[in-house]
Amino acid sequence: MVSGDGFQPVKSADRTLEVLEALAASGHRRSLVDLARSLGIPKSSLHGILRTMMQRGWVEADDTGTRFGLGMRALQVGSAYLETDDTVGLLDGALDELSREFGETVHLGRLDGPEVVYLAKRESVHPLRLYSAIGRRLPAYATALGKALLAERTDEAVGGMLTWPLTALTPHTITDPAALYADLAAVRERGYAVDGEENTEGLVCFAVAVPLQRPPVDAVSVSVPVTRLGPESGQRIVAALRRSVGRLAVARGLVAGHATPPG
């Protein structure tokens, strides 16, 4: 495939990255035949790629040697990304503060195309909690994190980012384009997003965008089971989110590569 600027990717490198992305997205080990079929790579070529990646620690095989998953090297590189990301470090204190105040699950998420990726989290102190994991990807339109960030873009830009038709994750997921655009307009008006059981039934999330870039790419959320959501809980959470994240506006220049130009 040739990109718009005429650059043609190196085939072997491109295939290696395809394998990594496929293994990361699957959530389970996959066979050579399965990978070859889904990626369109000949089994003989794929076998050599997997053997090379296993030798370097990027891929591991099960005891039978027939099913493959990510190796420790992938974990090392993923962890290094989080450790060196300026925004993750800058928001540590805000996440801790929100976690202490509410005892609920707190997330930092980043917009990546049509999805949101969890970059950091603080666990709920309660037995009934949201299941999530660092690196998990979710459709932006079905999460408070994602809607807070989509609302920072025009409807035209959002329409080009999402894959239509939208898939309903729960009976509450907004999949109608007009309804989604109306919801994003409401987010812009009030300054925060709400996921009303749109991603997970029984769970409500509140989120605000982090004002470190224009348009923002990161957002912070607090997730609460419906059973623990009191009449004023939402207002308290939104106020705390705004307070914690709002302090970061003055720190925008501290984030590498995002300093506000003078004048």
Rank of each mutant, 00 (worst) to 15 (best):
T154K: 11
S31A: 09
G27R: 04
L111Q: 00
R51S: 14
G6C: 10
C205K: 07
S26W: 09
R243I: 04
A182W: 06
A207Q: 07
G113S: 02
L229H: 10
A186K: 06
G202T: 00
G202L: 06
R236L: 13
V10G: 07
L169E: 06
P216K: 02
A140K: 01
A142C: 12
L95T: 03
Y131T: 13
G71P: 07
D92G: 11
L130E: 12
G78A: 10
D96Q: 08
E104S: 10
A185T: 13
P225K: 08
A207Y: 04
V88F: 01
P9H: 03
A80F: 02
R129A: 15
T163C: 00
T143F: 03
L150K: 00
L212D: 00
L98R: 02
P177A: 04
Q76Y: 03
A168E: 04
L70G: 04
L23Y: 06
P262A: 12
A140D: 00
P215E: 01
D62N: 12
A186Q: 10
L75H: 12
F7A: 12
T64F: 10
G4Y: 12
T227S: 15
P215I: 07
R122V: 09
P231L: 10
T173P: 02
G4P: 03
D176C: 06
G65M: 04
D112S: 14
V250K: 13
L184K: 00
A74L: 09
L149S: 08
R236M: 13
P165R: 09
V250L: 14
A61L: 05
V33A: 15
P231N: 10
L254V: 01
V210R: 02
E201K: 06
G71L: 00
R67K: 08
L75Y: 11
D183E: 14
T167I: 13
F102V: 03
P261Y: 08
I237D: 01
T64H: 12
S223H: 12
E156Y: 05
W164E: 04
S244G: 10
P177Y: 02
A36Q: 06
L241V: 07
G230Q: 07
W58R: 06
M72A: 14
G135H: 03
D112Q: 15
S233G: 12
P211R: 02
A144C: 05
H258N: 11
Y141E: 02
R242N: 12
A179H: 12
R15Q: 12
L108F: 11
R137N: 05
V217W: 14
W164T: 09
A249G: 09
A186S: 07
S223M: 06
T260M: 10
L162P: 04
T64A: 15
R188M: 02
P231T: 11
V217A: 15
P177K: 02
R153G: 08
L254M: 08
S221G: 11
L203R: 08
A94I: 03
R67M: 07
R56T: 14
